[in-house]
Amino acid sequence: MESKTARLTVLIDPEKKKAFEALCAAQDQTPSQIVRQMIRDYLQQYEVDYATKPKIGAPGLAAKERG
């Protein structure tokens, strides 16, 4: 898991932001959790490696990928 964090600022239409936040809340997740998962999925789609990428078959992988 990451030991340091960096801020990513995204400009989005206020109505989309409101709908996104509502959907996240309905799924009992934070917008940050969802965005982090989308970024991981995007990197995986293009087979991009990064330093904190979980190893295949690592114990607790499913729980770590949610946050």
Results as ranks from 00 to 15, higher is better:
Gln45Trp: 07
Ile56Phe: 08
Pro54Cys: 05
Asp41Pro: 00
Tyr46Phe: 15
Gln27His: 13
Lys64Phe: 10
Tyr50Asn: 02
Gln27Thr: 00
Ala26Asn: 10
Ala58Gln: 14
Ala25Trp: 01
Lys16Asn: 08
Tyr46Glu: 00
Val48Leu: 07
Pro31Asn: 05
Ile56Thr: 09
Asp49Cys: 03
Lys64Ala: 02
Gly60Asn: 08
Ala22Gly: 04
Phe20Pro: 03
Gln37Lys: 10
Gln45Asn: 01
Pro31Trp: 02
Val48Met: 08
Ala6Pro: 00
Leu8Pro: 05
Ala25Glu: 02
Thr5Glu: 01
Leu43Asp: 05
Ala62Asp: 06
Val48Arg: 15
Leu61Glu: 07
Lys53Cys: 03
Arg7Ser: 12
Ile39Lys: 06
Cys24Lys: 03
Ala22Phe: 12
Lys53Gly: 03
Met38Trp: 10
Met38Phe: 10
Ala63Val: 08
Lys4Arg: 15
Arg36Ser: 11
Glu21Tyr: 05
Lys64Pro: 00
Gln29Cys: 06
Lys18Gly: 01
Leu61His: 09
Lys4Phe: 15
Gln37His: 03
Ala6Val: 13
Ala25Gly: 00
Gln45Tyr: 13
Arg40Lys: 12
Gln33His: 06
Ser32Val: 01
Tyr50Gln: 05
Gln45Met: 11
Asp13Ile: 09
Pro54Arg: 13
Ile34Lys: 09
Met1Pro: 06
Tyr50Gly: 07
Arg66Gly: 03
Met1Thr: 14
Tyr46Gln: 11
Leu11His: 14
Lys4Cys: 06
Thr9Val: 13
Asp28Glu: 10
Lys53Val: 04
Asp13Thr: 07
Ile39Gly: 07
Gln37Gly: 04
Ile39Trp: 10
Ser3Thr: 14
Gln37Leu: 05
Gln27Leu: 01
Thr9Pro: 02
Ser32Cys: 02
Lys4Thr: 12
Glu15Ser: 15
Gly67Thr: 10
Gln44Lys: 13
Val48Asn: 01
Ala63Arg: 13
Leu61Arg: 13
Ala19Asn: 12
Pro59Asn: 06
Thr5Asn: 14
Pro31Ala: 09
Gln44Gly: 05
Lys55Ala: 08
Lys64Met: 11
Tyr42Gly: 00
Ala26Ile: 00
Arg40Cys: 04
Lys53Pro: 02
Val10Asn: 05
Tyr50Arg: 08
Gln45Lys: 14
Glu21Pro: 04
Ile12Thr: 13
Glu15Lys: 15
Ala62Ile: 07
Arg36Gln: 05
Ser3Cys: 12
Ala25Arg: 11
Lys17Cys: 09
Leu43Tyr: 03
Gln37Ser: 04
Gln44Asn: 11
Met1Cys: 10
Glu47Gly: 08
Thr52Trp: 12
Ile12Asn: 06
Glu2Val: 13
Gln33Ser: 09
Asp49Ala: 14
Ala51Gly: 01
Asp28Tyr: 04
Ile56Asp: 09
Arg40Glu: 04
Ile39Ser: 02
Lys55Glu: 12
Arg36Phe: 01
Leu11Asp: 11
Ala19Arg: 13
Lys4Met: 14
Ala62Tyr: 09
Val48Gln: 14
Gly67Pro: 00
Ala26Tyr: 02
Tyr50Met: 06
Leu61Asn: 09
Ser32Phe: 06
Gly57Trp: 11
Lys18His: 14
Thr9Glu: 12
Asp49Asn: 15
Ala63Lys: 15
Leu61Pro: 02
Pro14Arg: 15
Arg66Glu: 03
Gly57Asp: 06
Leu23Thr: 09
Cys24Leu: 03
Ala25His: 08
Ile56Val: 09
Ser32Ile: 02
Thr30Glu: 01
Phe20Lys: 04
Glu2Lys: 15
Glu15Phe: 12
Lys16Val: 13
